[in-house]
Design a binder for these strands. Sequence first.
DNA 1: TTAGGGTTAG
Length: 582
Amino acid sequence: MEAKEKRKRSAEYEAVVRAGPNLRRIQQAHAHLVVTGCYRSRALLTKLLTLTCAAGAIAYTRRIFRSVSDPDSFLFNSLIKASSKFGFSLDTVVFYRRMLLSRIAPSTYTFTSVIKACADISDLRLGTLVHSHVFLSGYASDSFVQAALVTLYAKSCAPRVAQKVFDEMPERSIVAWNSMISGYEQNGLASEAVEVFNRMPEFGVEPDSATFVSVLSACSQLGSLDLGCWLHECIVESGITMNVVLATSLVNMFSRCGDVGRARAVFDSINEGNVVSWTAMISGYGMHGYGVEAMEVFRRMKAHGVVPNSVTFVAALSACAHAGLIDEGRLVFASMKKEYGVVPGVEHHVCMVDMFGRGGLLNEAYQFVKGLRSDDLVPALWTAMLGACKMHKNFDLGVEVAENLISAQPENPSHYVLLSNMYALAGRMDRVESVRNVMIQRGLKKQVGYSTIDVDNKSYLFSMGDKSHPETNEIYRYLDELVWRCKDAGYAPMPESAMHELEEEEREYALRYHSEKLAVAFGLMKTGHGVTLRIVKNLRICEDCHSAIKFMSIVMNREIIVRDKLRFHHFREGSCSCLDYW
DNA sequence: TTAGGGTTAG
């Protein structure tokens, strides 16, 4: 009799397992259990709960959980793990609280899941509280818990705390190293991420594919092609399997470091691409202004049966915007909702305004903005509008837009600079002065622009008028001479795009020693003929530098590639790949 | 009566 009972139960259990994370089948299995009276079995209930959670039916999970009279430790742990794993972080916290209230002791397994949930919602306060529970429970030296804590602090914008936890770990697993590297990378501290990576060999730790994915992202931020190529070699030498995530990371790195050809070569080597890898390639072409190529990849992606999502559409629309493909952009935008059911969000709206604006269709851009719901009117729309006003010299509209921007974000100094630029271009110097005074009153400082360039595997940083470099005198002299040669070739400095409060002569001086010009001069000085220069600027390249670098590419017969905040500019033989379309 | 963790791409 007993054996028979046991066989029956295990058959029921098997039936639940077979249902898998499919809500309809789980419900059928659940109904069957209720009918046969087996639903009182804890094992079955627990399995049922984790499966409903995996199926994404969190409301159903909660309902079943509420019906359990006296949940045990196994049930709590299963539920906490499943809810955390499938992204129901707030539920994880609620279940954890219930567990504590039920006076059931959490284990290291409980903590890893709860800490991951706190990390996913970047809740530092809650995470710190759980960290104190870890101490009280005596699990502070568990390596899994510690690795989870590193992730928690890293993802909650506290990378220094993460580093402290990491440093105090007696044994650091590869996952802990990876958490530390990705933590720095995700907080925009790319150099620190690379430093951690470089310290791995001295601890005898072999990087795995997740390590490379994170360090490649850091490299993309830095825009350092030398570093990226070296990492690529490391991956090949390590014999790590090139999975789609790693390959996509490489595609992104090569694009963002200015070598879209290599990005394409890696992309072509991917066997089973997914929506992320295709999107990465579209975005890569887009940021270089290769709109036709981007749209070709977009077309091929659809032909391969890969369904574009919201991010893909941002990449495709932005590619159209940066290449002036207005009609194609319109078609893409129209197809979003109609063919793919993707509802346009604020990012897509910004792309459209940017696209119309760059193309000189200011009125259409403005009408597009006016047609949006008021809660969709994000500052980025006005910034795109403003860029268009400046490019196409519509100062009245520009002033109106800049004033809108300032009222929306009075604490953002770059809006004041834009407004001041607009007034200056419109010849309203009295207003320029008053905007500047407002900035001073409110204690707002213009964001400092800087440019970096790699020479002989070393990164050099320049800011405007920078004199910190040991070879400053040589660089300035070289640049002065270069500017003279450019002037001979037809370059005319454009003083109006400098800070307008300066006197005429000072303005030209300030322009001449902009960070990107200093970086170009240094690169030309230090590298041999035929070497392509690659510069990364943190802000948008200024109009005058854009013009000057075109001339530099002629007089020095060099290819110069500049990545700015928005896109790439390839300067060659006196023209730029953006076709002045930025 | 039942399993098991923390890291990675657009």
